[in-house]
């Protein structure tokens, strides 16, 4: 707990009425304590110091905060941290295998599916999940599935190309 508090961005960890919580993130258990109203994204970023997950809105509209919860993508600004207890959380930091990028990350690099990189962690996590669910069948379905992840830089062209390319590659490797 003290170790975690040091990684915060000034969030007051001494507030009353916190509940103890164990979060399993990227295959590792983190014991922490949170207020019941705290959002998963804030706990991931500020209590666990995993700042790869970004915040781009307050209205669950942009997808910058997308993480995997038991392998399904969720917007972590819509989930209370306490709801994630006992579930497997994967953030962008947990996707690559050491220095080897996950096929979706590699495809984003190959296809130039990112520019500023702010939407990217969320976009990649959403893509991992939609490929996993078999929804990356063609351009139209990828576009529909990524509707909730906004990007201002790429015009989406290369993001869609990256997802289709990764899906092909992952299918071939099965």
């Amino acid at each position: 707990m003290t170790e975690l508090a040091e990684t915060t961005n000034g969030t007051d960890t001494a507030v009353a009425a916190t509940v103890p919580l164990t979060l399993r993130v990227n295959g590792k258990d983190h014991d922490t304590a949170v207020e019941p109203r705290e959002l998963l994204v804030d706990v991931i970023r500020e209590r666990l110091g995993l700042t790869g997950t970004n915040v781009g809105c307050e209205t669950t509209s942009c997808g910058a905060c997308t993480v995997l919860l038991d392998d399904r993508s969720v917007k972590s600004c819509t989930v209370l941290a306490v709801q994630a207890q006992g579930r497997e959380i994967t953030t962008i930091e947990g996707l690559a295998d050491g220095n080897t990028l996950h096929p979706v990350q590699a495809a984003f690099q190959r296809c130039h599916g990112l520019q500023c990189g702010f939407c990217t962690p969320g976009m990649v996590m959403a893509s991992v999940s939609l490929i996993d669910e078999g929804r990356a069948t063609d351009e139209k379905s990828v576009r529909a599935a990524l509707k909730g992840n906004l990007c201002r830089c790429t015009g989406y062209h290369n993001i869609v190309a990256a997802v289709l390319s990764a899906a092909d590659e992952m299918e071939a490797d099965k």
Binding site: T53, C116, P121
Partner: peptide
Amino acid sequence: DPGLLTGR
């Protein structure tokens, strides 16, 4: 890209 794609 590697730094941005991994959240680093």
